[in-house]
Amino acid sequence: MNKFTALYRSSVGKKIIMSLSGLFLCTFLVVHVVINLFLFKQDGGETYNRYSEFMSSNPFIRTIEIVLFAGLIAHVISGTLVWLKNRASRPVAYEMYQLKDNTTFTSRTPMLTASASLVGFFLVIHLRTFWVPNRFWETAPQSNYDLVAAAFSDPVYSLFYIVALVFLAFHLRHGFQSGFQTLGLSDKQYKWLIDSVAVIFWLFIPLMFAAMPAYFLWFK
């Protein structure tokens, strides 16, 4: 058995893969949100279109895109395997179980699985709306900016985005610091630093993303 198989067989190994892939996906969120902020530039989407054209044609970005999908798949598979093992570890439930006395609601399994499932569902819809036409359709019917504007002019679609981003915030509220704990990088003396950086990921980034559908829906 090679070293990687041995690592992945252990529960801690699966969680390490989950943490590394999760934190890698977080770095992608930064790039994504920064480029999307050009949606707010009052130039009819010219800058935004230029950057999105660069992102879809640059060979380096295209390569990273494959790594990104691999990371997402690794995150989902590892998470599911750990979740299944964890479920099997207590066949008879407690009559009374006051987990809420000791834990935050974003860290408890129902919220973790709900947020993971909803964010997963959201990603499918999201990629179908924006990524598939951009990559696979021979002639794009409209510019990327117009695609965004059209999608977010639908109130149901925009509200779904905002709800999904609330769940992404819940997911990252727990997941970001959890990644550092699993990688053995959290310690009492660095806790303040991890918690502070975590705010960028679980609060500011989802807020900025949520501002986009809200902007097109109510202000355009």
Partner: peptide, 18 residues
């Protein structure tokens, strides 16, 4: 120790610190 822990059927952390 981790190998034995897994063999015994214990779950793993979801880091909720209960």
């Amino acid at each position: 120790m981790i190998e034995q822990m897994d063999k015994e059927g214990f779950g793993n952390c979801s880091n909720n610190y209960a």
